[in-house]
Amino acid sequence: MSWLSSFWRTSIGGKMTMAVTGLLLFGFVVAHLLGNLQLLQGPDAINEYAKMLHDLGPLLWVARIGLLVVFVVHVVTAVRLSQANKQARPVPYASEATVQATMASRSMVLSGLSLLVFVIYHLLHFTLGVTNPGHFAMKTSGAGGFDVYAMVSNSFANPAIALAYAAFQLVLFLHLSHGIQSFAQTVGIHHKRYTPMIKTLSFLLALVVAGGNALLALSVQVGLVEVAR
């Protein structure tokens, strides 16, 4: 434990913590998308999937707590590193210029904070049922669990909610497109041939994940998913 905390406190240890927790969170986002794509298959598929997850019981809580820990470590480390970065340049340049840094790389703190706000809203909306308790009225589905299909389709039937979710996917795209390739560089993977490939892959993966999520958010609006009565 002391090894881990002393490693975390170094600059490179902090960077690697960001990289590893970031990759784990990316893995979660991919699994989240793959699971939720079953929304397009109709009520039975997604409701059975939801029941299967809920039936995991204690395992579900292990996964939830694990995810929360990873998320908190990612945020706390980001705060520590970006504060140190701010302190490292007390006087800003009178004339600022950027030569080759991408917009995504320059906005990581901003996109990260936006995603934090989004995740909190998302949990209040779909997990805790605070923001739209009407949608959350837990009906029993045909599969015997919660009717997730009804909750999601009723929510995304609201154009404001659907657009807000879709808009946040742009932020997710920015964050992931820099984050995935950054992981490789930070853990020391850099190669003449593979690094350009990793950069392209990073862009494509971010596009697919954010695009898939946006598709789900807009699914009701474009008529891919029917609203459950």
Partner: peptide, 20 residues
């Protein structure tokens, strides 16, 4: 790395302005 950290430099965020 220890010496670098002690001097109060910031942390790399892979933006590659240095290389440019």
């Amino acid at each position: 790395v220890t010496a670098m950290d002690e001097e109060g430099f910031g942390n790399c965020t892979n933006q590659y302005e240095c290389e440019a």
